[in-house]
């Protein structure tokens, strides 16, 4: 049950950290990385506007589905065509 108007802080101020707001629920298409094709170039990490690609420069990148909004930029930019956008089935 969401908070009622008496409990919500006034002024529209967020009462939790933005990291707790899982914007990943917004997406319609989710990126899937084919690790056979992935060359570990890091482009997806650079291009993702939401910082939703986790990459440490050594291991191959992972999508953080909690925050990925499904924009498809990573798939568009991937030089190895290793990312496909799949319809989310909820």
């Amino acid at each position: 049950m969401k908070k009622g108007w008496r409990e919500v802080p006034i002024g529209g101020i967020c009462w939790v950290s933005s990291t707790e707001y899982k914007t990943g629920t917004w997406k319609t298409y989710a990126p899937r990385i084919d690790y056979e094709k992935c060359t570990n170039c890091g482009f997806c990490w650079f291009y993702c506007p939401d910082g939703a690609i986790r990459w440490n420069g050594e291991e191959k990148p992972k999508v953080d589905y909690d925050y990925c909004k499904g924009c498809g930029i990573c798939a568009h930019e991937c030089p190895a065509k290793a990312i496909t956008m799949e319809l989310e089935v909820k």
Binding site: K2, G12, C14
Partner: peptide, 21 residues
């Protein structure tokens, strides 16, 4: 603190209700 974030159908109404009070 975040002032003025996006406030959609889930909480905007509650904030407006507070203003009336």
């Amino acid at each position: 603190l975040t002032f003025g974030p996006l406030d959609l159908f889930d909480y905007y109404f509650e904030h407006k209700r507070q203003q009336e009070e």
